[in-house]
């Protein structure tokens, strides 16, 4: 009897905690989405309006803009390729750092983070000149390269700590069965750290999807990504509030789909780990 009571109290407490978490994280999102359906007058109503007559005019302007599809396409290409580059290169390096003892490995892995410590603003002017002379400005590959560079320190460090969690014995078992190092990496280790890979992939994707400063200044009309397109609604005097909120709502959809896909993988990785142990 007492235990069921305790359980009930715990369940109720749990419910409130979860509800509070939802409200904190979701209220601003709700406000963004609802703003995208508000006329400008309703968006700035004093006091704020909960109930309003919805409009889809801002979605219509987004979707009827011929540039918009091109922009989504750019963002998808650049983000997708960046993630592949970051994960493949990052996993190689991370594996080397996790499994090999060699002189200067700590210094080298640490020096990668240093690359991320500079405020991006100071890189802009020299990178602009460099990209100009390499003809990389306003190209997809240019942005992919620079996003990969910003992603790699994180990917390497993240994956390194996941690799280190895999007992070396599992790998050795595979070697005894005749697998080469890289084969063992692909067949035994990567499936084991799938949750880590998935998490890392999500962050690499989000960085590329949302990066603004470099996409704006090193990119150009041929590479306009969603955040750059979005910022085009900031005028000299005015902010096209509704357009920004509608476009941002659309921009949230592809990464949400990605995470939902990866979510499956996260759970699979979990069960796999349990079976393995």
């Amino acid at each position: 009897m007492r235990t069921t009571n305790l359980k009930r109290v715990r369940n109720i407490a749990m419910f409130f905690v979860v509800a509070a978490v939802w409200i904190f994280y979701f209220f601003p999102i709700y406000w963004m989405v609802s703003s995208s359906f508000k006329t400008r007058v309703d968006t700035f109503a004093i006091p704020p309006k909960w109930i309003f007559w919805p409009t889809i005019q801002f979605y219509l302007t987004s979707f009827t803009n011929p540039k918009f599809l091109k922009v989504i396409q750019n963002s998808l290409i650049i983000t997708g390729t960046t993630v592949v580059f970051s994960l493949v290169l990052g996993a190689w390096a991370a594996y080397a750092f996790a499994r090999f003892r060699f002189k200067g490995s700590l210094t080298l892995s640490f020096s990668l983070i240093v690359a991320r410590m500079m405020p991006p603003i100071v890189f802009i002017v020299p990178l602009y000149l460099l990209f100009n002379s390499l003809k990389l400005r306003n190209t997809h590959i240019g942005l992919i390269l620079i996003f990969t560079v910003f992603n790699l320190p994180f990917t390497v460090w993240m994956l390194k700590s996941f690799f280190e969690e895999v007992p070396i014995e599992l790998e050795e078992a595979a070697w005894i069965d005749g697998a080469s190092r890289l084969q063992a990496l692909g067949r035994v280790i990567l499936p084991l750290i799938a949750p880590g890979l998935a998490a890392t992939a999500v962050f690499a994707a989000l960085l590329a999807w949302n990066e603004f400063l470099f996409a704006l200044l090193l990119g150009g009309p041929d590479t306009t990504t969603l955040p750059v397109f979005l910022s085009g609604f900031l005028g000299e005097r005015d902010v096209e509030w509704g357009d920004i909120m509608a476009t941002a709502t659309v921009a949230v959809l592809p990464p949400t789909l990605l995470v939902m896909l990866v979510q499956q993988n996260l759970i699979k990785g979990l069960t796999l780990g349990a079976v393995k142990g």
């Binding site: 994280y25 979701f26 999102i29 963004m32 941002a248 995470v259």
Partner: peptide, 12 residues
Amino acid sequence: GLLVPLMVPPLA
């Protein structure tokens, strides 16, 4: 759902 705040473009 927790990831959605990360996905919203910073401008928005």
